[in-house]
Each structure stands twice: as structure tokens, then as C-alpha cells.
Design a protein around this nucleic acid. Structure first.
Lengths: 164, 164
DNA sequence: GACGTATTGTTATGTCAATAAACAATTATC
DNA sequence: GATAATTGTTTATTGACATAACAATACGTC
């Protein structure tokens, strides 16, 4: 069920993605897609997707946050936040609370059920990452975290001049 | 032009994505999206997208490769390869060559123009990554590369059991 | 207080990359 | 030689976004 007829000369000894492996972007993409797929599988039984999981985390950490603020933290547009919050509200995990000082805005709150859901989700993802990165010891995992944060920062800084 | 009316109690001192920063997946996503956007900008003047750039690299490294094999290397479906190869062929960078032993398949070849294009693209992306990761020294970049490869491998291994 | 402007959340629509499903032509297998 | 599998392709669908317009509300200035 693998190679059969097709040109045998192709895909010889050496790796076919040799020329791509030199790039951080390529390796980052491969790692990211792997992790993302696994993460989605982990969250699915809890009724969460990556987007709703992330939003729930932010609202947990910042109760009363507005949808506009949430969109800035998550780096998506306000219109995108609507469907995410709709989803979380439909699941009973989050509530749109009126803001006294501004009747346009909602203050987002995590319900008790939402807090319980977050506890389960956080634990599930922690366990998942622990299993996923079993090959990396604690030091290596810390190093990876640090390098990823710095890479993102570096990208953001570099981007400042060209994204406007 | 940033925060104004909205609930001041929200987004207090601490980071609103505190609960997410513990996860490698979150930091990976942020870094990846940064890099991907920048990469697309770098390739655009050359008439390439990330997908076509990657395909060109693989065909460079494995002349005569078939579209099915290419789809396996790039981790996309055969139907997705069609548009990528169409694009590269339209640009005159790649050619679909008939295979003697199998009249269904094409052996993909990079044209002279395609080789020149690859040389320019490879150099552009190398320069781009050098600038993008200027904050990381050579050792750190190597370490990041290594950790990303191992993370992807770890994910793939972990996935073996659950993706069927 | 009244005016124009800005902001919040929302809806509708588009985009982009990728998948899924079906297909004709060809090849492999028994 | 009949049946099954494979290659590349087309068409339709998905998902996760962005864009653009909108009503309701708030702000800034006179």
C-alpha cells in the first residue's frame, strides 16, 4: 500500500524534504500541525475546540473582560469572537453580563459549570502535552517554551515595520 | 486609541493569557502564525506561496517524483497537489513529464527557470529567517530546530495509535 | 443639550487552504 | 480476462478566519 509502480528513481535514499529542513518555519509548521490535531482530539470529548478552549482560558484569567478586549488577546477580529462566545454560552460555560457603565459592551464571566469544565480541560491538555512531549525532559521543554516565546516576539518586532 | 470606557477591572496587571502560556501548543501557535505571515510576504514578490515554495523544494530534491508521492511528503491530499502543481506549471517552474512505465502518473521536473526561481527563493527565505531570528544566536537556533523536529516526531509517534 | 464621531457587538458575505467524494484512465492481481 | 486498486482530476464542502456594513450606544466639543 505504499510505493509500487511510480518512478522508482524518485524518493531515492535521501529525504525528499531535505531542502526544507533547513528552515525553522518548515519544522515549526510540521510540529504545529501535529500538536494542533492532537489537541483538537483531546478537547473534542469536552465539547471544546482550540478557539473556545483559548477563550475560556482568557476569560478565566480576566473575568469581566469585554469581547473587543478578548479579540485583541486572541489576535482575532471582533466578529470572530462572537461565534466563539456564542459557542461557550450555548455550552453554559460563559455568560454575557451587562456592563453598568457601557450598555454596548458585555462583561464576560465564566459560570460555575464553565469553571469545572476549564479544570477538566486544563488537566486534559496538561496530560496530553506531557504524553506528547515525553521525549523531551523538563529542561528541554522549558527551553522549547522559551525559544518559542522569543521567536514569536522576534517575529512581532520584525513585523512592526511592515504590517501597517 | 486603546482601552477607554470598558470595564477597567478586566485586564488588570497580570497577563490575560497567563493560563495559556503554560502550554507548548499555545506558544507554538503564536510563533507559527507570526512566522507564516512573514514568510508569505517574503515569497509573494517571487510569485510563490508557502505551498508552492514547499512543493518546489521537494521536486528539486527529488526530480521525477509523482504527485501522489509529493502529497505524502507535504502531508496534503492528492487533490490539493493538483492546484499546487498547476500553479508551479503555470509559472513555468515545473513540468509534468509522462512516465514510461505508468501512463497514469506524471514525473515532476523542475525547469531551468524553476531552478533559478528556487535559488532566489531559498536565499530570500534564508535571509528572512536570519533577520527574523536575529535575537537567537546560532546555538539557540540549532536547539530550536532540534526541539521542533523532535516535537513533530513525538507527535507523529503518539498519533500512530489514534489516527486510524 | 445637540451635533458629529468613535466604539461595541452583531450579521452577512467573502476568502483561503484544505478535505471529501466522485470520476475516467490506467495498472495490478488473481 | 474479470475484478480491484491506483493516478490525477473535478466538484463540492468544510473551517477558521477576514471584510464590510449595521443599530445601539458612548464620547467630545461646542
Amino acid at each position: 500500500m505504499k510505493e509500487k509502480a511510480a518512478p522508482e528513481k524518485a524518493v531515492p535514499p535521501k529525504q525528499t524534504d531535505m531542502l526544507l529542513r533547513q528552515f525553522i518555519g518548515y519544522n515549526m509548521k510540521r510540529a504545529y500541525l501535529q500538536i494542533q490535531d492532537d489537541m483538537a482530539e483531546t478537547l473534542e470529548p469536552l465539547g471544546l475546540r482550540i478557539g473556545t478552549f483559548s477563550a475560556l482560558a482568557v476569560i478565566m484569567a480576566s473575568p469581566g473582560i469585554s469581547q473587543t478586549q478578548l479579540s485583541e488577546v486572541l489576535n482575532i477580529k471582533r466578529s470572530g469572537v462572537v461565534v466563539v462566545v456564542d459557542d461557550l454560552e450555548r455550552a453554559g460555560a460563559v455568560q454575557r453580563t451587562p456592563v453598568q457603565t457601557d450598555r454596548r459592551a458585555y462583561a464576560l464571566q465564566v459560570t460555575p459549570a464553565g469553571k469545572a469544565l476549564w479544570a477538566r480541560a486544563e488537566q486534559a491538555v496538561q496530560a496530553h502535552e506531557a504524553a506528547l512531549f515525553a521525549d523531551l525532559d523538563a529542561d528541554e521543554r522549558r527551553a522549547l517554551q522559551d525559544l518559542l516565546v522569543r521567536a514569536a516576539r522576534s517575529g512581532a518586532k520584525h513585523r512592526k515595520g511592515t504590517d501597517g
